[in-house]
């Protein structure tokens, strides 16, 4: 196996193009290294971008936050900018894995891994983040189009995430995030839900809902969003939403939970996030 530590983006892209399938990109390593150890992957070359300068940043402009691909999950969790403009993301970051992992894991790695339970994906779906992908040329993909299936994304062999753009939350927006795991740290989500709502009194102007671990990929709950958006929020409507969410998801049974439990918990968690945002 070879090891290459490119110095800039251009070099990375060149290497990925050159090695294609034979290469694995490694940043924080918290997903790649266990795969290497288990020999689940056997790349011929490791392209290490962990020390690359210039891809670790959290910047803001008037309407958006720009998060560099190599920003660690710890940095997400403690960033004042994110706490202020995208609190959903910092909440989720704070519950990803464990503190030691958070110090290594990067936002791009968490997304590129494409886990259906990816902790940062769920709030980013609600926040309608844009994934900036660098390949032959740069393109922007809305996060809801980024995930394809279990551990599959739209990323091609010669592409990488360069940045995540998060539209700033409207200061009046209400947000809430719940993660249900089997313990309080080092838990893989059994179900997670993030919601962002813009309200005018009890009238919902905008609703965005991200869900994790309830489908082959992290998803938006569009049907629920439609039910809520431009509607007066009534107890009845909320109840209807909680009843409907089961139809929007397609969870599996695994050792952590059955699909029946996941379906029911999606409804419970939806109720809770709605309660939080409507209070």
């Amino acid at each position: 196996m070879e090891y290459i530590r490119p110095q800039n983006l251009k070099e990375i892209l060149h290497l990925m193009k050159q090695w294609k399938k034979k290469a694995t990109l490694i940043a924080g390593g918290t997903n790649v290294i266990p795969d290497l150890r288990a020999r689940a992957i056997r790349p011929e070359v490791l392209i290490d971008i962990s020390q690359l300068k210039g891809l670790s940043y959290i910047k803001e402009d008037k309407k958006k936050i720009h998060i560099g691909a190599l920003t660690t999950v710890s940095e997400l969790a403690s960033s004042k900018i994110i706490q202020k403009w995208a609190p959903l993301l910092s909440e989720a970051a704070n519950q990803l894995g464990n503190p030691l992992v958070r110090n290594r894991a990067t936002i791009a790695g968490n997304l590129a891994d494409g886990s259906p339970a990816a902790d940062t994906a769920v709030p980013l779906l609600a926040l309608e983040a844009i994934i900036v992908i660098q390949g032959g040329k740069e393109k922007q993909v809305p996060i809801h189009q980024f995930f394809v299936g279990p551990n599959q994304t739209v990323l091609k062999r010669d592409e990488m995430i360069k940045e995540v753009i998060v539209p700033k939350c409207n200061p009046n927006a209400k947000t809430a995030y719940f993660k249900l795991g089997l313990r309080n740290s080092m838990a893989v989500s059994v179900v997670s839900i993030a919601v962002l709502m813009e309200m005018e009194k009890t009238f919902c102007k905008k609703a965005r809902i991200g869900c994790g671990a309830v489908a082959p990929k992290p998803i938006r709950a569009y049907r629920i969003e439609e039910m809520l958006e431009n509607h007066e929020l009534t107890e009845r409507l909320l109840r209807a939403c909680c009843e409907t969410i089961g139809k929007e998801i397609s969870p599996i049974s695994d050792i952590r939970a059955s699909k029946e439990y996941r379906t029911e918990m999606a409804s419970v968690l939806l109720k809770r996030v709605m309660k939080r945002v409507t209070q």
Partner: peptide, 16 residues
Amino acid sequence: TMTPSFSEYLLPTSMD
């Protein structure tokens, strides 16, 4: 064995 590692075999953590 469906619980081959400490990701699946869940010990209490300091937060539990």
